[in-house]
Design a protein around this nucleic acid. Sequence first.
DNA 1: GCAGACATGACATCATTGTTGTCATGTCTG
DNA 2: CAGACATGACAACAATGATGTCATGTCTGC
Lengths: 149, 149
Amino acid sequence: MSDRGAMLYEVLRHVRPLVLNSARVVEASLRGDGLSVGMRAVLEILAGHGPMTVPDIADRLDLARQGIQRHVNDLIALGCVEPRSNPAHRRSVLIAATPAGSELFARIRTGELDRLGRMAPGCTDEEIATALRVLGALNRDVRAEARSA
Amino acid sequence: MSDRGAMLYEVLRHVRPLVLNSARVVEASLRGDGLSVGMRAVLEILAGHGPMTVPDIADRLDLARQGIQRHVNDLIALGCVEPRSNPAHRRSVLIAATPAGSELFARIRTGELDRLGRMAPGCTDEEIATALRVLGALNRDVRAEARSA
DNA sequence: GCAGACATGACATCATTGTTGTCATGTCTG
DNA sequence: CAGACATGACAACAATGATGTCATGTCTGC
């Protein structure tokens, strides 16, 4: 039972259905606003870290820039996001959340936090913080393995 | 900081790249055997819990039975899995891992455990166990929310 | 028993999205 | 200045989750 490999294996086994189920819940909430889960992720980055180029967003999300570009284009069409000319790089456009986009994301996030607050009632804050640390460390190492291959 | 909603939100944010990156690593290893991540998941269930019907596998993986059926059909074509007539239900066929399939999965799992054992070296066994508990509780509640919607 | 509700396998179709490739153009480094 | 690289704008593809249909088998309540 003290085999860390086996325990991390169990973590990964838990993580996949969690992503699927949470995506289903989030997607249901988003449907009314015309957003997808991917678009929501992009909007989250922009709302949280300010204007950024498409390749930078892709790096943060561990995805190819081409896929992010699609989400950005869709978000522009919705008016949630807008391109801004970059004074330093004529070719590299900055993407920024519009006021409408920021407000929309704030509303989405508030609703999600509301629901999440009622979940996992048997877990203490410390336990959740520990889980966060473990997930961070595991993802860092798995990510390194994925990029080296 | 003691807002559990915000902390669980962070957990979900960590979980998505973890699934993506681990899938990339696992997929690279599986490519040589002609398996996909989905087929691997089905084989894992059968190797661990014995023969089972397609709908039962789907329930365990939180997926629709139609998708599982595709994976099962592919696994049958590879000889990793075989249908067995069910004495109790003529229509509901049991799917069982073949010796070749069991052996293949054992080999895959061994390799994965090997690599995982070297990851997240800064985390203790207790911390990983705590993470496991949190993920289990969170997924249980998220899953309930997904099914109620 | 029987009838209707339900489960199952076998199709089929569709949308999302991650992946990969290409190309013209702009930027940066040596 | 020249070659390497980054970026946006396509395009095409594959995996997979979602959904629907239908014939056939099973089960439940009457």
